[in-house]
Design a protein around this nucleic acid. Structure first.
Lengths: 214, 214
DNA sequence: TGTACATCAGTGAACGCGCGTTCACTGATGTAC
DNA sequence: TGTACATCAGTGAACGCGCGTTCACTGATGTAC
C-alpha cells in the first residue's frame, strides 16, 4: 500500500470505493437537508470527487436514492428481525420489542427512514427495492402470525390485517412524532410509550388477555 | 367590465387575484410532481404571470408552500368537523365517519395533504400554520373526548392519548396505502376498511362493547 | 362629474449560480504470455 | 519476474438550462378635492 493508507482520506487517482462513499454522502446530505435537499453534484462534491464520477456507478440521482433506500430496508429488516428474536422470550414481549425497534430505527436513522418512505420514489421503481421493502415488512408479518397462533382457532384475526395495522400505527407515530428535531410535534409522552400503549390496547381488543408490565 | 370577462382567461395588466391563483398553481404542481417538485418560477409560469410577480405576494417558495398547507389544514378541519357532526347520530358512528373523512380527504386532496404533512416545512415555521394544524387536530380531540365520556368514570382512558392513537393510525394508513397512484402499496382491502377495522378493535380494547354493523 | 396624483401590481431585462450531462482524456489496475 | 496491452475509474472542461432575485419601469386602480 505504501503511503496510501486505506484508513486516511488520502487516495490516488482511483477512489477505490466510490459507490459506497456516494451512498454515505447521500445519507449525510439527507440527514442535513431532507430527502429532496441534495443533488447528484452535491453527493460527488461531498465524496471528494468530480461531478462526472458518479455516472460510473449510478444512472442518475434517483438510482442513487433507490440504492440508499434498498440498503435502508435491508438494515431495517435486520434490526426488526433481531428485536423479534424468533419470538423469544415470549411472543408478546418480542412483539413489543419489534415496536420499540421500529421507532428506534426511525429516530436514530432518520436519513435511511426518509429515503425509504419519503423519497418520493415509487416503491415499485425497482424490483430489488420492492423486494427489500417486502422482506422488512415480512418480519412484522411473521411476528403477527406467531401472535395470532396464540389465540384459539375460532377467534384468530387475519394475521395480514393485524400486521398492516401495526405497521400503519408505527409508521404514523414515527412520521408525526418520532423524528429528529425537524417536523416534530410536542407530545405528553415518548413515541415509544405511545406506540406500546396503542399496541396493548389493540391486542386486548383482539382478545389477548392483559399482560402485567415487566 | 367591457371585453374583460372575469370568467375567461383574459386579463389586463393586473391579474386581480394572483395570490389565490398562485396557491392554485402550487396545488396543481404538487399534485403532478410532488411537494418537492415545483419551483417559484413554475408557479408564476403556471399562473400566466412573469417570474417576478410572485414576490409581490410571497417572500419565497416556502412562504407559498406554508400558505397552501395552512389553507389545507383549514379545509381539513372543516371536512372532519362536518363528518363529526357534533356526534350525531351517535358518538360511535360519528367517530367512524371522521375516520372515513380523514382518508377521503387524503385521497381526494393529495396535494393539500402533501403540503400539510410532507412538504418538509417545520410545523412551527409559522404561528398561523401551527394554529391551523392544531385546530384540525382539535376535531379528533373533541371526538375522542365525547367517546371517552361514554365509558364509566373509572375506566376512561386519557382522551388525548386516544386521539393521538387514532391520528397516527389514520395518518399511517393514508401515507402507506391511501394515496393517488404514486407510492401506493397493494392491499387486500380498501384503506377505509382497514382503518375502520383497526379503530373498532382499538375501541374494543379500551372497553367499548362491540357494535353491530349498520 | 372631472382632474391630478398617489399607490399598487405586474413587466421584462438582466445577473450570477449551480445543476445535469457529455466528451475526449489520463492515470491506475489487472492479466496474458 | 518482466513486459505489453486491455480495461476500468476518475478528470476537467465545456455546454445549455432554468432558477432565484433585483431593478427601474409602466399600466391600472383608487381617492381627494
Amino acid at each position: 500500500m505504501g503511503w496510501k493508507d486505506r484508513h486516511s482520506g488520502a487516495r490516488g487517482y482511483h477512489h477505490g470505493n466510490l459507490r459506497e462513499a456516494l451512498i454515505q454522502a447521500a445519507l449525510n446530505l439527507i440527514a442535513e437537508k431532507g430527502p429532496a435537499g441534495f443533488t447528484f453534484a452535491d453527493a460527488a462534491r461531498s465524496a471528494g470527487v468530480s461531478a462526472a464520477a458518479p455516472y460510473r456507478h449510478f444512472r442518475d440521482r434517483d438510482a442513487l436514492m433507490a440504492d440508499v433506500a434498498r440498503q435502508g430496508f435491508a438494515r431495517f429488516e435486520n434490526t426488526l428481525s433481531i428485536a423479534w428474536s424468533n419470538g423469544k422470550p415470549d411472543a408478546m414481549t418480542a412483539f413489543a420489542n419489534v415496536g420499540k425497534a421500529y421507532l428506534h430505527f426511525a429516530r436514530t436513522e432518520p436519513a435511511y427512514y426518509a429515503a425509504m418512505f419519503e423519497s418520493g420514489l415509487p416503491p415499485d421503481l425497482d424490483a430489488d427495492l420492492q423486494a427489500a421493502g417486502d422482506r422488512a415488512f415480512g418480519v412484522l408479518r411473521t411476528a403477527s402470525d406467531a401472535l395470532c397462533a396464540l389465540l384459539p382457532a375460532g377467534k384468530r384475526p387475519p394475521a395480514l390485517m393485524m400486521s398492516l395495522h401495526v405497521w400503519a400505527l408505527a409508521h404514523g407515530i414515527a412520521s408525526l412524532f418520532g423524528r429528529g428535531d425537524a417536523g416534530r410535534r410536542k407530545l405528553p409522552m415518548t413515541a415509544e410509550e405511545l406506540l406500546e400503549a396503542a399496541v396493548l390496547i389493540y391486542l386486548q381488543g383482539l382478545g389477548f388477555s392483559p399482560v402485567a408490565p415487566t
